[in-house]
């Protein structure tokens, strides 16, 4: 990329997936109108889902998914050694994601529930940063490609990227979205990190907090207002545990 007499490097990028749905990495191949330019800015050298070549020479590793098996830990440690810059991509990688809900139960129970009489090896789910040093986290279920693009631009120029500080409510208001509380539903919008453009409440689903906690949350007031509207603390906590981004508040594993 050339800009203002500067020429940016074209970093070698690898994308790896662990325990996940592959939805976030699919975003890399999404947004066709800018896909060619995106691929010009970076050099993808290892990406199982879209190519067969594999190289172990890369600058940036995007990690999708959480860690739930011993062999995944080993793979992750190797990647960390090779990558100069490691990015956790999506809510599973950042927080453990939906997978994390199983940590509430004994591993033998969840194994039986899913695999019946043929149990598989499984560990309690952990996010990437619980195992290795993470240089940057991009939360979201799935991540927003537009945001990934902006972050890549910032990485290329080696300048800091700042996530928005506002909660989801702010973006709902800009879309004329009727407050889900107004419709009698529980919504995590007031304490969840915005920047997603609030598509869920606009589409008819309250916020479940996939991007984690916003920069200046007011949990005391949030529990109050939920209670006033008939939602118990347990109900709110259960909702917060869905993506695992609120563990500092809920105290869940």
């Amino acid at each position: 990329m050339k800009y203002l007499f500067m020429e940016s490097k074209r970093p070698k990028v690898a994308v790896f997936d662990f325990t996940d749905c592959e939805g976030c990495e699919l975003q890399f191949a999404n947004k066709e109108e800018t896909l060619v330019d995106f691929l010009k800015a970076i050099d993808i050298v290892n990406f199982r889902e879209v190519m067969s070549e594999k190289s172990d020479e890369y600058d940036i590793a995007f990690i999708e998914g959480s860690i739930s098996r011993a062999d995944e830990i080993e793979r992750l440690l190797t990647i960390r050694q090779k990558a100069k810059f490691l990015i956790a991509l999506g809510s599973c990688a950042c927080f453990g994601g939906v997978n994390r809900m199983k940590n509430k139960f004994p591993m033998s129970d969840v194994n039986k529930e899913v695999y019946g009489e043929t149990p598989k090896e499984t560990l309690p789910v952990r996010s990437i940063k619980e195992l290795v040093h993470v240089d940057f986290e991009i939360p979201g279920c799935p991540v927003s490609k537009a945001e990934v693009e902006r972050i890549v631009q910032h990485i290329i120029w080696e300048v800091p990227y700042q996530f928005p500080v506002y909660p989801v409510c702010f973006e709902c208001k800009q879309r004329f979205t009727i407050c889900r509380f107004e419709l009698g539903e529980l919504c995590l919008g007031p304490v969840s990190a915005g920047g997603c453009d609030a598509p869920c409440p606009a589409g008819g689903t309250p916020c479940w907090g996939c991007r984690g906690i916003c920069a200046a949350p007011n949990f005391q007031e949030f529990f109050n207002l939920a209670k006033e509207r008939g939602f118990s603390k347990e109900e709110v906590i259960e909702r917060m545990d869905f993506f695992g981004g609120f563990r500092s508040v809920t105290g869940s594993k």
Partner: peptide, 17 residues
């Protein structure tokens, strides 16, 4: 200090701002 100034610090003579 911020994003704009960080990129400016990389800019070269002749750049148009």
């Amino acid at each position: 200090a911020g994003i704009v100034t960080s990129i400016l610090h990389k800019a070269r003579r002749g750049a148009k701002v």
